[in-house]
Amino acid sequence: MLRIACPWCGPRAEIEFSYGGEAHIALPEAADALDDAAWAQYLFMRTNPKGRHLERWVHTHGCRRWFNVVRDTASERIAAVYQPGAEPPEDAR
């Protein structure tokens, strides 16, 4: 079970959080102008890497805030947490 450092509440057990999938998948500005393939790409396709992954978590049973996490999907090491909308910290890229 992971130990995730909520940016607001500090390190907490994974059971307090919910996973929110890959981060930095922004809602396209002009969704209506996209063709079906491009829309499907946005809606369904994810990178699913082995290794470094930028992903979203929410502290469901804590402060209910969303944030981003840099996690290695193979080693489970968490390199950084950062605010939604921000870029991952330099040293965790």
């Binding site: 509440c9 307090e16 469901t60 049973h61 804590g62 402060c63």
Partner: peptide, 9 residues
């Protein structure tokens, strides 16, 4: 702190 107690927030 907000957390879990048993199965409730």
């Amino acid at each position: 702190a907000q957390t879990l107690l048993g199965k409730v927030s």
